[in-house]
């Protein structure tokens, strides 16, 4: 390495970069993550199969409920199935490997090498999570098309405005989902097994996101609880906007709530990470 290069590396290491200080590094990470996803495409396909089974179960249960008593649920069957299919697609698209990736690095001590890099750890994980999400969106395309064939107009956005607002809502849902996972995964600094971290987040997500049913079908106490948690903004809010179940001022209110949760959880992740790094001890040599 030449003297100039060496000095440049030293100066980069010495200067603490801001969260988005070196965009090129995060873009490079993003590109490599996309390549890694394509390298493990068999894993992604089996993941899609497993997710398909998981999302089909509530769909088939609801199908039976509507067949047995068509007028019992307060939402028409076609609307409910469109909601469930879109919810399943969105949940799969937001299924990033943050817990697996970060948890493994914490447990094995590989996080030490991440700390040597002159990039922000949280934003680096965000760029990798973005590559996961975009790759998953590609896989969801055919499923959305199947929905279009079977459910026809029901699966289309209510209007152009709904589509645009829902796209913004999905971006915010991505940041919320990433930030929730990032907060939860830091429990790996304190526990040995990664299961608890994943399971706790997954349980809350399953219950309160509206993944298996729109919140309107929930008992009042579950609906009221979900109002106070961020999970509904990962699935229910974007889909409700897309399908036109909410409009006008209510859309703006929901987007503002999503933005608030996204900022709050992202900052919470930073605070916890800083505290965890202060007590982090990695042995070896």
């Amino acid at each position: 390495m030449s003297a100039t290069q060496s000095e440049r590396v030293r100066s980069r290491a010495a200067l603490p970069l801001g969260p988005f200080g070196d965009l090129a590094s995060y873009v490079a990470l993003f590109v490599r993550s996309v390549r890694a996803n394509f390298a493990y495409r068999q894993a992604v396909l089996t993941s899609l199969l497993a997710a398909g089974i998981s999302y089909s179960i509530p769909l088939l249960v609801w199908r039976h409920v509507y067949a047995a008593s068509p007028h019992a649920p307060p939402i028409p069957a076609a609307q409910l199935f469109a909601y469930l299919l879109l919810g399943g697609c969105l949940n799969f698209a937001l299924g990033m490997s943050v817990e697996f990736r970060v948890g493994q690095r914490i447990r094995t001590g590989m996080i030490a090498t991440d700390l040597l890099k002159p990039i922000d750890f949280q934003v680096a994980q965000l760029s990798q999570a973005l590559s996961d999400a975009l790759f998953n969106v590609l896989l969801c395309g055919p499923i959305w098309f199947v929905g279009l064939v079977t459910l026809r107009g029901e699966i289309l956005p209510a209007s152009t405005g709904s589509l645009l607002a829902s796209l913004l809502s999905i971006v915010l849902a991505f940041v919320i989902m990433f930030s929730i996972s990032f907060v939860f995964v830091q429990a790996a600094f304190f526990t040995n097994s990664g299961y608890g971290i994943f399971a706790a987040r997954s349980a809350l997500q399953q219950t309160f996101s509206g993944l298996s049913a729109p919140l309107a079908l929930f008992p009042w106490w579950m609906r009221a609880t979900s109002e106070w948690l961020p999970f509904r903004h990962t699935i229910h809010t974007p889909i409700a906007i897309y399908l036109g179940w909410v409009s006008g001022g209510e859309v703006a209110r929901l987007l503002a709530l999503q933005l608030g949760w996204a900022v709050l959880l992202f900052l919470l992740g930073r605070v916890i990470l800083a505290a965890a790094f202060r007590r982090l001890e990695i042995q070896g040599g």
Partner: peptide, 20 residues
């Protein structure tokens, strides 16, 4: 943590049953 979260997961599944 494992005890608590596996119970949580079962309750999450039961919550769907409540909705149904």
């Amino acid at each position: 943590v494992g005890m608590l979260t596996s119970v949580l997961l079962q309750l999450a599944a039961l919550s769907f049953l409540v909705v149904i």
